[in-house]
Amino acid sequence: MRRLLIRRLLLAVPTLLVAATIAFVLAHLAPGSPAVALGGDFGAPGLVEEIARIQGTDRPLAVIYVEWLLRLARGDLGFSFRAQAPVTALIGDRLGVTLVLTLSAALLAMLLGLLLGAATAARKGGRAAVATFALVQALPVYLVAQLLVLVFAVGLGLLPIQGLENPRAPPEGLAGLLADRARHLALPIAALGLGQFGFVALLTRARLREELGRLYVTTARARGAGEATVRLRHALPNALLPLLALFGSRVGALVGGALVVETAFALPGLGRLAVTAAIARDQPTVIGVVLVAALAIVLANLAVDLLQLWLDPRQREAS
């Protein structure tokens, strides 16, 4: 148990370094510089060079890289001239929105997927269910978002189209704030969650069918256990284990989906920050966001490992 933890954490360091270095190289190889992006639209001789000097981007790449590494070791991600703030502050401001969005969506996908996957795991039929799940999984996230907006916001007028709060009537009190946030985030979470839900449902169904064919299920049935008990108490936990491992690998997709959802619903999240920063050649910010995304994936995998250990007595004893 402890060995696994230590191993994971040791591996996290090179992982993050590789991710950040790839981002560093990409951001600095990109045509154009932050000075060109900030330099404005009308010709002003010398301005681009002056901005580059102020920002320090006119120095050799190796020097910038080493300096960046040294700062990174101290937990300093650099300063964004575009946003006039340290990168850590920029990321901190947006982390909450993206976390709420992705975690809620993951939870929604898990619950819905497990439920519907288990419900359709019957021996006969179910091909329609598979096709439906596959279709939901196959829909691009922005289409799901657009359809949800057309039905629930534009059509029925139940929920807002965009944003995190209503600027005309800022919510009052904690309860009011929470209710307002929930109203604004309902569609984004649904759009992001539905994209992942098909995947979970398909897998749950497949695993459960596998488990339902096993001997212990027949035994349970022979003992007179009801069908629901057999599925939920006996087969599902066993089917869940390999599923968990796969879910860890979906974090990347979730982060990518968040980018689209944040754009479509105009939410201030990390995905938007990455795109805005990329266009402005805001190199420290770009690298910072990639680093945080890689960290999220590492942490998610760690959490999945721990959860698996906790759920599976065989592995617990083996370690």
Partner: peptide, 12 residues
Amino acid sequence: VDAAGLGEAVFA
């Protein structure tokens, strides 16, 4: 290209 890319390709 975006503004930075245009600045590089066309003007610089």
